[in-house]
């Protein structure tokens, strides 16, 4: 027989225990949600529309701060693609440790890394919950059969696959702060220009980034005046209509503003590009750091292919 895989039958008592735990936890979270729902009488209160600044910690010196942005991005970006290519659980975990060390040595508060991880958690949870049950059967794999769920076996391979995805996603997300948050945004973007990104796009990114904060203030102001007039967001037709008008107003005022912004830029001598005053020199040290990261990435990939540990 070719399908000689292990099938683990979970005993009914154990499964009943798991089920009980699951029901208890989901019941608890529903109770907490409902309580939160009732405790907030002012559900229309100004929601949290805060936008983090990417370069808030760009001044404290570190391994990453002292690195020429062009070489930094030019080596860490390919490194991210090398990490994406990893297949086995063990080497993905090593990549995650490398990222944690990078975050630690970049002198950026760990909360910023954590915030990035929570932003992805919903999307990744979907993989952890669905992939183990929907993976196609492969010969010789381990299945875990839960009682009463005979038609829906838990594929251990699928679980490993979902876990590698989560770990890789975490590893790359944690590299974002050391890669892009350790120089001020204009300097980082200047590095991208030196890597060959058209400067038109870079200028648009800078302008967009600037005006995000302006429009953030604008929507907070507009929303406040709606609330003063008694608006509360609900799941109904009126809310849709009001919010449709809200978006329409936002877009019209943004178009109106563009002309003024552009004329103001022309008045200040804008000729199609922002001047740059200092061009950082690429030192030998920068290149050495870049080489080190590429080496780490290649080594991870080589080990992953030659010594796969826990590969799905």
């Amino acid at each position: 027989m070719d399908r000689s895989g292990t099938i683990i039958h979970v005993s009914s008592t154990f499964a009943a225990g798991l089920l009980f735990l699951a029901i208890f936890l989901s019941g608890l979270s529903i109770v907490l949600l409902v309580r939160k729902w009732h405790r907030e009488p002012d559900r229309g209160a100004a929601p949290d529309w805060s936008i983090p600044t990417i370069d808030a910690y760009a001044d404290t010196p570190s391994f990453f701060h002292n690195w020429d942005p062009a070489v930094k991005i030019g080596s860490l970006f390919p490194y991210c693609f090398l990490v994406v290519s990893l297949k086995s659980l063990f080497w993905c975990a090593v990549a995650l440790i490398v990222s944690l060390l990078a975050l630690f040595f970049s002198n950026i508060p760990w909360q910023r890394g954590l915030r990035r991880l929570t932003a992805m958690s919903g999307f990744l949870l979907m993989f952890l919950l669905i992939v183990p049950f929907t993976s196609p059967a492969k010969p010789g794999e381990t299945l875990i059969l839960l009682p009463m769920l005979d038609s829906l076996p838990f594929h251990l391979n699928g679980f490993y696959l979902a876990l590698t995805i989560v770990i890789k996603a975490f590893a790359i997300a944690l590299m974002m702060e050391p890669m892009l948050g350790t120089s001020s945004l204009p300097i980082t973007l200047q590095g991208l220009v030196r890597l060959g990104v058209p400067s038109a796009i870079i200028q648009m990114i800078l302008l967009t980034h600037r005006y995000i904060f302006v429009f953030q203030q604008e929507i907070i102001r507009m929303y406040r005046s709606m609330r003063v007039r008694g608006f509360t967001a609900r799941t109904d037709f009126t809310t849709m209509k009001t919010m449709g008008n809200f978006f329409g107003m936002l877009f019209i005022s943004s178009f109106d503003r563009t002309q003024k912004v552009y004329e103001a830029m022309l008045c200040r001598g804008y000729q199609g590009s922002f001047p740059t005053f200092s061009l950082p020199q690429t030192r030998r040290e920068d290149l050495a750091k870049g080489g080190l990261w590429i080496m780490i990435g290649i080594l991870l990939l080589v080990f992953d292919r030659t010594l796969p540990v826990l590969a799905p």
Partner: peptide, 8 residues
């Protein structure tokens, strides 16, 4: 520059 502002 105008498209950049609308993008925000």
């Amino acid at each position: 520059p105008k498209i950049a502002v609308v993008t925000s």
